[in-house]
Design a protein around this nucleic acid. Structure first.
Length: 567
DNA sequence: CACGGGTGCGCG
DNA sequence: AAAGCGCGCACCCGTG
């Protein structure tokens, strides 16, 4: 059963119940079962009651507009449809290309405010259930839902698309739940880590260690007024000291021999830590022992999550020791091993590559086939294949990979060629890449028009190859993101089953997600079971994407007290 | 003073 | 231009 929620004015909600599962034609015909009007204040109780009875799939315009308030009232829902996220997928997917939804002119569901990129409050501590200031007419969620159902029914691959939409919607629930629970984070441990690296927190100005390093840099370069934070100033000072250098990037500085280099590199590293994840960051983002970033499901073209504020997806290794389990609890830190190459094996039905990863490290398995001599070579060659490297070590090793795994390499090569022609790439479950933009178009027309110059042609070729590298990577990255969503959705259900009847934060629950990595916070006695659930969910995700094709998705699941202890 | 592009680096 | 994908964020610096 589906229940479509729609706000009516300031204080009431319409709930329309539709009988029939997602692929039932009764739904597509819009068979309305019944309709209730609920006051905003009664909504949590209404949802809780229906959830206990029938576990409907809740259909709403935007999970962020509904779920945080429900969670605050300790109401969890099992399944949902996030119309905004699903709309974006169906609009762009080649699998629903002819549908009314896809061919309609842009509407309210396509507006910037409705997209994943825009309209996100920077720090929504508590989103109101309704935005009272927003008096725009809300587009009908029921009408949109029926359009989506129609697009799905007419699709060439309805099963894949339905799975993708369910996984995407589950991701939105998980993001809200993770924000609600927060990542256990010790401000005290964070302060200790910073103090150990930078010196104690200064009342104002730079910490002592940075101040000393800046002084060392200035004296080594004989530049008493140098601002080490200004790349142009640093570059000029280095050149004045006789060094041949064209930027202040760390990798370039590392090759230089000069007394200023070591303090400069250390300064840059520590300065980065201070500005990105220093005391101010902790003051802003850590409250009551929890780090609560704003995740943005579907925020990346490939379907990966983004984050807005807090930089949750860039938490540097240096401070991971501050991520600590509560007393009596454990962290289960899990990581999918060689996820993207394994996905590529599945996408390409490459039996040989799948076999190379069966029961072992995939890169070691590639070495065992004799394609390359060492693990590091296997890794760099695979990355080169998936990113489109043409030169360097990676470019040199690629042909050997193509020889050993022709199917896998052919798949990414074809995705690249298609992108170069301006075509669209589509993931395993049906997320499609955006068409190339205006820059691509104008470069191509400039090169093919009358009087085009050699420079125009070079430019067109370069733009075209750039886009090819994007579509090449898109098929792998987008499919990996789908796998990860399926993994988490499956895991979310299994974790709830480990402690039936308890609220999310009293049971094992997800607290962190980083593309191919998750952290579960679990009562110590349930941590081993949670770790087993992580592993089993990964296997299930593989089956959801690739059926019986024998590609494995092993995960490492470490039961630890601190994030820093894992791997 | 605000804004936006460029730089550089954190993560996968 | 690190050899190649996807991001977010802080800072500098030129421009309006």
């Amino acid at each position: 059963m589906h229940v479509i929620l729609e706000r009516l004015g300031r204080d009431s909600v319409r709930a329309v119940r539709l009988r029939g599962a997602g692929d039932d034609s009764a739904v597509a015909r819009g068979a309305r079962l019944d309709e209730s009007i609920v006051s905003a204040g009664d909504l949590p109780a209404f949802v809780r009651a229906l959830e206990a009875e029938e576990r409907p799939r809740w259909v709403w315009n935007d999970t962020r507009a509904w779920y945080p308030a429900l969670l605050a009232a300790h109401v969890r829902v099992e399944r949902s449809v996030d119309l905004r996220l699903c709309h974006a997928i169906l609009r762009g997917s080649t699998l629903s290309a002819g549908s009314a939804l896809a061919t309609a002119p842009p509407g309210p569901w396509d507006s910037p405010g409705a997209s994943a990129e825009g309209g996100v409050p920077r720090r929504p501590e508590h989103l109101p259930l309704f935005d009272l200031d927003d008096d725009r007419a809300e587009p009908s969620p029921l009408a949109e839902f029926l359009l989506q159902e129609e697009a799905l029914s007419a699709s060439r691959e309805p099963g894949r698309l339905r799975l993708l939409l369910a996984a995407e919607s589950a991701g939105a629930l998980i993001a809200a739940e993770m924000h609600h629970a927060g990542l256990p984070y010790s401000a005290r441990r964070h302060d200790e880590l910073l103090a150990g690296l930078l010196g104690p927190r200064p009342p104002y100005g730079l910490p002592a260690v940075l101040e000393d390093l800046a002084a060392d840099i200035r004296s080594a370069l004989d530049a008493p007024d140098l601002n080490p934070d200004s790349p142009p100033e640093v570059l000029r000072a280095l050149q004045r000291a006789g060094l041949v250098v064209s930027s202040t990037r760390s990798w370039e500085l590392r090759r230089l021999e000069h007394p200023a280099i070591d303090p400069l590199l250390r300064y840059k590293k520590l300065s980065r830590l201070l500005t990105a994840n220093g005391w101010t960051w902790a003051d802003t983002w850590v409250r009551d022992g929890r780090f609560r970033p704003d995740y943005v499901p579907g925020g990346v073209v490939t379907g990966r999550w983004a984050t807005r504020g807090g930089g949750a997806l860039q938490l540097p290794r240096q401070v991971r020791g501050a991520v600590v389990a509560d007393p009596g609890w454990k962290l289960v830190v899990a990581d999918a091993a060689q996820l993207e190459p394994r996905l590529l094996a599945g996408l390409a039905s490459d039996e040989t590559m799948a076999a190379a990863g069966r029961g072992k490290d995939l890169y070691e398995g590639i070495v065992a086939t004799g394609a390359v001599e060492e693990r590091a070579h296997a890794k760099v060659a695979m990355l080169g294949a998936m990113y489109g490297a043409t030169t360097g070590e990676s470019g040199r090793l690629m042909p050997r990979l193509a020889n050993a795994f022709p199917r896998a390499v052919r798949l990414v090569e074809e995705a690249a060629r298609a992108g170069e022609r301006g075509e669209i790439a589509t993931s395993r479950l049906g997320r499609s890449s955006p068409p190339p933009g205006a820059a691509w178009q104008s470069a191509q027309s400039a090169a093919s028009g009358d009087g085009s110059t050699a420079a125009d042609e070079r430019r067109a070729r370069s733009v075209s190859r750039d886009w090819g590298r994007f579509t090449r990577n898109f098929v792998v990255q987008a499919s990996a993101a789908e796998w990860a969503l399926c993994w988490m959705a499956e895991l979310r259900n299994r974790l709830v089953d480990l402690a039936p009847g308890t609220w999310i934060t009293d049971a094992p629950h997800l607290v962190y997600f980083l593309h191919d990595e998750v952290i579960v916070h679990a009562p110590a006695e349930l941590a081993p079971a949670a770790a087993a659930a992580v592993t089993e969910s990964a296997r299930r995700a593989g089956v959801l994407l690739f059926g019986s094709f024998p590609v494995e998705f092993p995960v490492t699941a470490a039961v630890v007290d601190s994030y820093a202890e894992a791997k």
